[in-house]
Computed example of a mutant assay.
Amino acid sequence: MALKILYEDNDIIVVIKPRGVFSQSSSGFEEDMVSLIKKHLGKDSYIGVVHRLDKPVYGIMVYGKNKKATGILCNELRKKNIRKIYEALVEGVPSENRGKLRDFIKKDNNISRVVEKDTEDAKEAVLEYEIIETKYSADRYITRLKINLLTGRHHQIRLQCAAHGFPILGDHKYNERVIKEKLDYNKVPALAAVALEFKHPKTGKEMKFKTGADF
């Protein structure tokens, strides 16, 4: 699989993660982004994971090429200084053209669920959304959303959209209609990370990257 590079220097590499590829090292024989980048840089190269995308999700990712750069970027992520923008196709129409979803999420194995605030191990999950367009197709409304992810919880966008009544098209984990009707959609949620903004860990320069959604 060819590696699509958006930017590279001595400290960072910004790439497009294809669908079906793990964003961090895989324990099995499946392809992962760390291995793909090492094929490009050399097998002994340092590759630092800064953030993650679900395996079936497409989009922009940044990796550190040394420990110092990776540490700075991870700290910026913790301080919510890295901006991550997604696009999604959802079933239904949110009640407002723009809104903020705030929930508490708990991860159980490979599934997350919305829980009460005082639940043990619950973590706050926040995102902002904006409707781009809505169309009527195949007896239902399909809405394209722009999503600003303010926290990075496990399956956060997929879970929150479903919990608030507009599940992501094709999501076999959280879209109840897909699960009940055993719809396939190649088991790919219509979700893509289309923009990433952060300060360069060495120079402090504002770095902005965009790509189109693949749906």
Results as ranks from 00 to 15, higher is better:
51 H>A: 09
188 V>A: 03
64 G>S: 04
81 N>T: 04
112 S>M: 08
30 E>S: 15
10 N>T: 08
68 K>A: 10
99 G>M: 12
39 K>M: 08
28 G>W: 13
10 N>R: 08
24 Q>K: 12
44 D>E: 15
37 I>D: 00
207 M>D: 10
186 N>L: 10
136 Y>K: 15
167 P>C: 07
16 I>S: 01
58 Y>S: 10
18 P>Y: 02
12 I>D: 02
184 D>F: 02
164 H>N: 15
210 K>L: 01
76 E>C: 06
200 H>M: 03
169 L>T: 08
158 R>L: 00
77 L>N: 02
50 V>G: 02
172 H>D: 15
27 S>A: 08
206 E>R: 14
54 D>K: 02
94 P>C: 08
25 S>W: 11
127 L>M: 14
76 E>Q: 15
88 A>I: 03
167 P>E: 03
208 K>N: 08
160 Q>G: 07
212 G>N: 15
160 Q>W: 08
190 A>T: 06
98 R>W: 05
71 G>V: 06
115 V>M: 03
40 H>D: 09
99 G>R: 06
154 H>V: 06
140 R>M: 13
79 K>W: 07
190 A>S: 09
116 E>C: 11
2 A>N: 14
94 P>Q: 07
74 C>T: 13
144 R>H: 09
90 V>M: 08
14 V>H: 01
11 D>N: 13
207 M>N: 03
11 D>H: 14
23 S>M: 12
201 P>M: 02
100 K>S: 13
70 T>C: 04
166 F>I: 13
206 E>W: 04
154 H>D: 11
8 E>Q: 13
192 A>S: 14
99 G>E: 14
61 M>S: 07
9 D>R: 00
142 I>M: 06
44 D>A: 09
10 N>C: 04
69 A>R: 02
85 I>K: 00
159 L>H: 10
180 K>D: 15
8 E>Y: 03
160 Q>A: 08
77 L>R: 09
110 N>R: 13
111 I>N: 11
42 G>D: 12
133 E>Q: 10
145 L>Y: 12
165 G>Q: 00
14 V>P: 00
142 I>F: 10
145 L>T: 10
150 L>I: 12
31 E>G: 03
65 K>S: 12
3 L>T: 07
140 R>A: 09
69 A>C: 04
25 S>K: 14
102 R>D: 13
56 P>S: 06
33 M>G: 07
144 R>Y: 08
194 V>R: 01
117 K>A: 01
120 E>G: 06
199 K>P: 01
54 D>V: 08
210 K>A: 01
104 F>R: 03
204 G>I: 12
152 G>Q: 11
207 M>P: 05
91 E>F: 10
140 R>L: 09
89 L>R: 09
26 S>Q: 12
142 I>K: 15
126 V>I: 15
45 S>P: 06
141 Y>I: 03
205 K>G: 00
8 E>K: 14
122 A>N: 13
215 F>L: 04
160 Q>F: 07
93 V>T: 13
182 K>I: 06
92 G>V: 04
124 E>V: 10
103 D>T: 05
115 V>I: 09
204 G>M: 04
77 L>T: 10
212 G>P: 05
169 L>H: 07
87 E>L: 04
19 R>E: 15
169 L>C: 08
15 V>H: 01
112 S>G: 15
190 A>E: 09
163 A>Y: 14
214 D>L: 05
124 E>D: 07
213 A>T: 05
139 D>M: 06
86 Y>V: 11
41 L>N: 12
